[in-house]
Write a protein that binds this DNA or RNA. Structure first.
Lengths: 212, 212
DNA sequence: GTGCGATGTATCGGTCCGATACATCGTGGC
DNA sequence: GCCACGATGTATCGGACCGATACATCGCAC
């Protein structure tokens, strides 16, 4: 998962580790707290060994001015390679059970603007399936096995069930939007929408289902 | 986390691994999919080494009848020890940053009926604090940094923000309930509430805020 | 001039997961 | 009669990821 996220971010611009972590946190803030350096650096090492990214010591723009006295050490900038872009394309397109888990889905979704529509639809429907199953499990528990559990556990299940139902509705909306060829929901004032680089869908619709 | 959950479940009854996993899945179904054997067995080993649980090969009740021919192998039953109960009490009472994360909070909450009220309140408030911070982070992102992110990422943030707001409200309710000395919300038909063993709170109130 | 928070790179031990392997049991179909 | 199949059951291995920790630099406020 980290691999996919790193490759995706480096595709936008070369970065050093610290920056990468901040961008990662910004992009995935909704699904995970903050990614640890204990994961980040080893993964960068691995990606580099595989030839998907290259490491370059930062050369200050004004290199001639201050040759080597202040020395400006550290700051290793990582750049994605052609093979890395290929790898990203492969990872982003391939779907499996882990694509539908909480983290996997979140990461894939965060890069939906680089994903073709067929894949987007496949992922959204797979995720819906997964959540529906979780929901049924919770419903069963709250129905049949309720007397075996204490009041707090039951309340936890109820809250979880609520979240499942809510997410299924959210996914339904997204799927409907996707099928109609529209971009995802756009905020009321309409001034959003990131820079368009490669293959995000044509966003012709300005419809926004109001959220009261 | 697993350690706490296992100790908590074995306190209700001795079990073998497979059963433990099922119970774990039932109790924590709302917060995590299903715990892996790759975590369960090593943890059981660790708990046993620490003297918190004991392992006993299952002796069939009708042991004399079928002495050793069919042999009935496998089925190792784990039982919690006095030290284990002590350890559980210690783990359930101690709070820290990891107590307020998604998984940590879920596990602690699932054993709230074995937790004293002061600790319950501390955990609920800590969790609320954590979610409020996550919420503020998402709000900032959707406000200031919105133009840097694509439409899908923004939609993900919105959904995350929504979930945060919802959870904060849920926690507020629970905190209010806790302060007033009531048990957690009780389903409308009122036939719930697990067996009462040690220290769950006196549940005098039958009030249930209706969920339309 | 000095302390302190942000920036920045890096490792280590430990927890947990996913895949895999293997054995037993009951049940239903042929 | 028998056998395939799904549930029950124990177990290991490699890998992903986290939390704590260490250490160095930079800019700024006091």
């Amino acid at each position: 998962m980290l691999e996919l996220a790193i490759l995706g971010l480096l595709q936008e611009a070369p970065m050093h580790g610290y920056e990468l972590r901040k961008e990662l946190t910004a992009k995935l803030g909704a699904i995970r707290a903050a990614i640890s350096y204990g994961s980040l650096y080893p993964t960068l090492r691995r990606l580099q060994a595989a030839g998907w990214i290259t490491e370059a010591a930062e050369t200050p723009a004004t290199a001639e001015d201050v040759p080597a006295l202040t020395s400006r050490r550290g700051r290793v900038v990582y750049t994605i390679t052609a093979e890395g872009k290929e790898r990203f394309a492969q990872l982003i397109a391939q779907t499996g059970p882990e694509t539908y888990g909480d983290t996997g889905f979140g990461v894939h979704f965060a890069f939906f603007s680089r994903t073709d529509q067929a894949t987007r639809l496949r992922i959204l429907e797979g995720r819906r399936r997964t959540i529906e199953e979780r929901r049924e499990g919770l419903r069963d528990m709250l129905g049949r096995a309720a007397e075996r559990l204490d009041a707090y556990t039951l309340e936890l299940q109820r809250h979880g069930l609520d979240a499942c139902e809510r997410e299924v509705r959210w996914l339904e909306e997204l799927i409907a939007n996707e099928r109609s060829g529209r971009a995802p929901t756009v905020p009321p004032d309409g001034t959003a929408g990131g820079r368009r680089e490669d293959n995000s869908p044509p966003p012709p619709g300005e419809t926004r289902k109001e959220r009261p």
